[in-house]
Simulated scan of single mutants.
Amino acid sequence: MAGFESPVISVKNLSKQFGPGCSNCQGARSENLIKNYCQVCGTVYACRDVSFDVFPGEVLGIVGESGSGKSTLMQCLYFDQDTTNGEAYLAAYQNGEENLFKQSSQQKRYIRNHVMGKVYQNPILGLKMDFSSIGNIAEKLISAGHRKVSLMEERGTELLDKVNIPVHRRKEAPKNFSGGMQQRVQIAKALSNNPPLLLLDEVTTGLDLSVQASVLDLIKGLQRELNISIVLVSHDLGVIRMLADRTMVMLEGRVIEQGLTDQILEDPQHQYTQQLVHSLL
C-alpha cells in the first residue's frame, strides 16, 4: 500500500472555530476551554490542527463521539464550510501544489465536480429528491461539463447497475426510495466523474442492520474495483473495522491517536480510544 507513493490528499493543521474567540481562549488554549468550548465568549473549536494524508487506494477511517469534529472536518474538505486555518493539497488538482482552501469559489466548484465525491449522512443534502435517479447522476455530469445526453445516460445506467438500483426504478425520484436505496443512488452520483477521492460521512447511520451490511459491502466492492481513496467518518467501530486500512481517532476537535486500524482496535494507546474499543467488546 502506501510507502513511496505520494498522497492523494494531504491535510495540514486544519482548524475550524465557530465564534470570534477572545483573550481567554485565543490560540485555542486548552486549559481555558471546557472540552472545546469557551465559556467566556461562546466560541467552539470544532477542529484543532488536524493533519493527515490519504494514499492511493487507501481507506482512512475517522472515529469519535458526537461533537468530536469529524463531520465538521468533512464539511471543510468538501467546502460545505470555510476553514479558519489550514492547508489541503490534492494530487489530482494543480499537481498537488495549490492549497485547496485558498481557491476561488469557481475553482472549489470545479474540485467538487471533478476530483471529489461526497456521500452525506442525510441523502437530502446529496440528492435532488424530485429528480429521477438517473437525472441526479446527469446533474453531476453536467456540472462537470458533459453535454452528450446519450453518454450521460450510458454512464448513469452503468453506475446504477453497479449500486444495484433496479432498471424499472431509474426514472423514479429518490423521494420514493428507502433509506438504503437513497444512499446507493448518492454513491452512484458521487462516483459519476471517477473522482480519485470519496468522502463518506456516517453513510450507514439510521439504516437497518441488514441494509447497512449491503451498503458497506457495496462500498468495499467498489473501492477495490475502482482503487479509489476514501475518507470515511463513523462513530461505529464495526464500520471502521470492516472498511478502514488506517484509523484516526478524534476527541474535542483534536486527533488523539492514529495508526493501522488493526493496531488501534487491538492495542489502543489513548485512554479515550481504550474506552471506545472496550465499549464495543
Rank of each mutant, 00 (worst) to 15 (best):
A28S: 15
Y78D: 03
C47K: 07
N194E: 15
D80K: 06
V44M: 11
Q258S: 13
Q186H: 05
E87G: 00
P20L: 10
P195H: 08
V59Y: 02
K108R: 15
N95R: 15
G117C: 09
Q269T: 13
L222V: 15
I137V: 14
K171Q: 06
N99M: 12
Y110V: 07
L127Y: 08
L191D: 04
Q182W: 03
E257I: 11
V40L: 14
G19R: 09
L199M: 09
L90Y: 05
G206S: 11
L209G: 00
I230M: 13
S279N: 12
D161N: 15
N95T: 05
N227A: 12
E87H: 08
L222I: 15
A28K: 06
D245V: 01
V185T: 09
V63W: 05
S143Q: 13
V115L: 00
P7Y: 08
V44K: 11
V211Q: 03
V11A: 11
K148V: 01
K12M: 10
Y93E: 07
E158Y: 14
V63H: 06
G117M: 09
I9A: 09
S30T: 12
R170F: 00
L159A: 05
L232M: 14
A188Q: 06
I219N: 04
C22A: 12
L33K: 04
S104G: 01
L265H: 07
E139F: 00
V149S: 00
R155E: 08
L151S: 00
F101Y: 07
L218A: 08
G179I: 09
V231R: 04
V249W: 05
I264C: 10
K118Y: 10
G179N: 08
K140E: 04
G145L: 10
H270F: 11
K118V: 14
A2I: 10
F177Q: 06
C25P: 02
G57S: 10
G117N: 07
L207P: 02
D201T: 14
G145E: 06
M116V: 08
S104W: 07
E172Y: 01
R112L: 09
V119F: 02
N176Q: 10
K12G: 02
H270D: 15
M152C: 01
M248K: 10
I228E: 03
E31N: 11
T204A: 10
Y110L: 11
D262A: 11
I187L: 15
N24M: 14
K118A: 04
T273N: 09
T84H: 03
V40D: 15
L226W: 07
V119G: 00
E257P: 07
